[in-house]
Design a protein around this nucleic acid. Structure first.
Lengths: 102, 102
DNA sequence: TCGAGAGTTCAACGGTTATCGAACCATCGT
DNA sequence: ACGATGGTTCGATAACCGTTGAACTCTCGA
């Protein structure tokens, strides 16, 4: 069992911005919460929880992956999504650091 | 010297969304960082740091206040801005809590 | 091989938002 | 009272973004 697959991420300025934008949309945030709830989560599962089209789900997942908040890998016809808690942690830390006033 | 003016804030769902949106714009985030840097910060100071109009500064400050991230009070003709670190802290905690997967 | 289901891509639309100049209000010094 | 300075408000504009249906690809099972 791999407990720490985390590549010890240090956020770049660009990634910080991407994450902030990814978290800004309530729907996307809600998707992230559902993904965080399940261990392994296919897009199809998300589809059942929200009244949105496949296209929209796909779009949001892509944004979350682009920000590094979610890791997705193909499993046959499914796309398994997993939340990157270490990245969330890094973002949170960086946010507080930037506003700590030196 | 008042060290803890913080009203022990517990975030509502709406405020959580407002904060996320407020943090999403890089310019606004940069403004917040400058405000966090100084103890007392007038809008005029911010004007010098960024190539934007007064109107834009005013707009962003209003958004930050609306989100609860900044507290502003009039001091004569100036508007003194102060960062609410407790709210940042609360947002950060809530973000991690929501993605902790129960 | 064929059809069904899972996801992606694309063009288009509608709503949000960041930005500005200009006009405005408020406060301070002279 | 007046001018200068700090901020606000108000259209207007341009860019961005969330959403969709439709057309497409890929994989699985019958």
């Amino acid at each position: 069992m791999k407990t720490t697959p985390a590549p010890r991420s240090k956020l770049t300025g660009k990634q910080f911005d991407l994450i902030a934008k990814a978290l800004a949309d309530p729907r996307r945030m809600a998707l992230l919460e559902v993904i965080a709830g399940e261990e392994e989560c296919a897009c199809q599962t998300l589809r059942k929880e929200f009244p949105v089209s496949k296209a929209t789900i796909s779009f949001h997942i892509k944004e979350l992956v682009r920000a590094g908040l979610v890791e997705a890998r193909r499993d046959g016809q499914f796309l398994q999504c997993e939340v990157r808690r270490d990245v969330l942690q890094a973002y949170s830390a960086e946010l507080l650091r930037r506003t700590s006033g030196k």
